[in-house]
Write a protein that binds this DNA or RNA. Structure first.
Length: 490
DNA sequence: AAAAAAC
């Protein structure tokens, strides 16, 4: 059971309080849209919505950068629907309904989610939408396309399939949206994207949205836009201020124990744990499962059916933990997610921003914990640079685990029965490595050639704990009869 | 060092 939301209110910091947020019903929108927005429970606009919607309504191209979880989907779908309603083209025979708006997303789940939102906002209108993505039967998609849709939401691969099968014609597209635009423009997606864009009319309105835009991507994006307006709220590449970000020095052996302990000590209802590889994620999910956590896994080696089931079960609260690759890093809106863990430090700093953006959405508070090993020094430096924040590494002492069952093979002649055998995990027989002060100094983004900063800090730094989590040192020492040796001084 | 997206 989840605890009642804590009544704590952030300290009043009225110094930078801007004008009260504008309401949706002040916008020049069709009553059908106003009604749909009201139905969905939204009253006032987020900053990105307040800035972007009027510009999209003017018909301008937009590059929109806003923090994660601030309503970018509504920022483009509502004004696009409005434009489609306003410019309902009577010259097009009712029998022919060409695709007028195309929204592209980098993952199937995200495409699905965007489609749900579009449907929600379009529900009182005649505009029809459909989503197409891979991993599922093409036939229902084909039928829907042939019946005619005004708004098409898609992932690139399957859309190309439909184009080649002549299931849809895109030469009447008036509006294009690239959701998670920087990802869509990256090297892995670019060829498919260019191919798709080649089927579209040159004369169109194009919208690019993401929480992160690197300077290179910004430059590249210019070539797909006409006289665009850059809409930014706050600084780009930023993480929500409501998310508590922690970086903890760990070893590969400690990581899972640290996560479990934090979940327990903070009574965290649900969390996403990100890993860098599909195999690693699958293994980690099985391990959490063995630990008794209700665990769902989400990665590209799973069937689409399994992927959707995992995500749904997690969203419904039937799972404690969702272990995922970066397929879940972007865009996914999971209401009230209290915490995100990075079991692995992401390879791209941008993905760090997106991953932790799954928590602290819509102004809620959230916790983001990244587990850092020695070999992650470079990646941490990249993240520091991107989010323009000094990263300090906390240390963490893992509480002793309950006795484990003996896993030694039978032929060792060990009594196996149900008798638990105390097998101290290697990391706990000696003082745990993560409690070593080597990581304790504020980490300095160092150059490759220099020894990393923690090497220098190793000898001198006192252990500074993550006070809210840390176990009293005594407890560990008492249980394992190990005392922390003085730093080797030779 | 990877993941994602088509069959």
């Amino acid at each position: 059971m989840s605890e009642p939301a804590s009544p704590q209110v952030p300290p009043a910091d009225a110094s930078t309080e801007p004008a009260p947020p504008a309401r949706f019903d002040t916008l020049p929108l069709d009553p059908k849209l106003i009604r749909a927005v009201a139905d969905s429970g939204y009253l006032t606009m987020t900053p990105i919505q307040a800035k972007a919607i009027p510009i999209v309504l003017q018909g301008r191209d937009v590059m929109g950068a806003a923090q994660t979880g601030t309503g970018k989907t509504a920022a483009f779908s509502i004004p696009l629907l409005q434009r489609m309603l306003k410019h309902e083209n009577p010259s097009v025979s009712p029998a022919r309904h060409p695709v007028r708006a195309l929204v592209l997303a980098p993952t199937r789940e995200l495409a699905d989610q965007v489609a749900e939102n579009v449907k929600k906002y379009a529900k009182h209108t005649q505009l029809r939408s459909v989503v197409v993505f891979g991993g599922v039967d093409m036939k229902p998609q084909t039928a829907a396309l042939k019946a005619g849709v005004e708004v098409l939401i898609a992932t690139p691969g399957r859309l190309l399939d439909h184009i080649e099968a002549k299931n849809c014609v895109l030469n009447q597209v008036e509006y294009v949206v690239l959701d998670e635009a920087d990802r869509m423009l990256d090297i892995g997606f670019l060829p498919d994207l260019q191919r798709i864009l080649s089927f579209l009319p040159k004369q169109r309105q194009t919208l690019l949205f993401s929480a992160t835009f690197s300077p290179e991507i910004k430059r590249l994006a210019q070539s797909y836009l006409q006289d665009p307006i850059l809409v930014e709220t706050a600084r780009p590449n930023q993480t929500a201020s409501t998310v508590e970000q922690r970086f903890i020095a760990a070893t590969d052996d400690d990581k899972r124990a640290i996560i479990k302990q934090i979940l327990k000590e903070r009574s965290i209802r649900q969390a996403i744990v990100f890993g860098n590889s599909k195999l690693g994620v699958a293994r980690l999910a099985r391990a959490f499962e063995r630990d008794g956590l209700r665990t769902a896994a989400l990665h590209g080696d799973k069937s689409q059916d399994e992927r959707l089931k995992s995500l749904d079960a997690f969203k419904r609260g039937e799972m404690d933990v969702l272990v995922a690759t970066d397929v879940a890093a972007r865009g996914l809106d999971i209401a009230d997610l209290p915490a995100v863990f990075n079991f692995d430090v992401p390879f791209n700093a941008e993905d760090y921003v997106h991953r932790i953006g799954r928590t602290g959405r819509a102004g809620a508070s959230g916790l983001a914990v990244t587990l850092v090993t020695k070999s992650d020094a470079r990646l941490i430096a990249d993240i520091e640079k991107l989010i323009k924040r000094k990263i300090e590494l906390d240390t963490f002492e893992v509480a002793p685990e309950r006795p484990r069952y003996d896993r030694r093979p039978r032929d060792e002649g060990v009594e196996r029965e149900d008798r638990p055998v105390r097998v101290a995990p290697p990391a706990l027989r000696a003082p745990v490595k993560s409690a070593d002060p080597f990581f304790d100094k504020p980490y300095e983004a160092s150059t490759r050639d220099e020894p990393p900063a923690w090497e220098k800090a190793k000898a001198a730094a006192p252990v500074k704990g993550l006070s809210s989590y840390i176990k009293p040192k005594k407890q560990v020492a008492a249980l394992f009869g190990a005392k922390k040796p003085a730093p080797a001084e030779s």
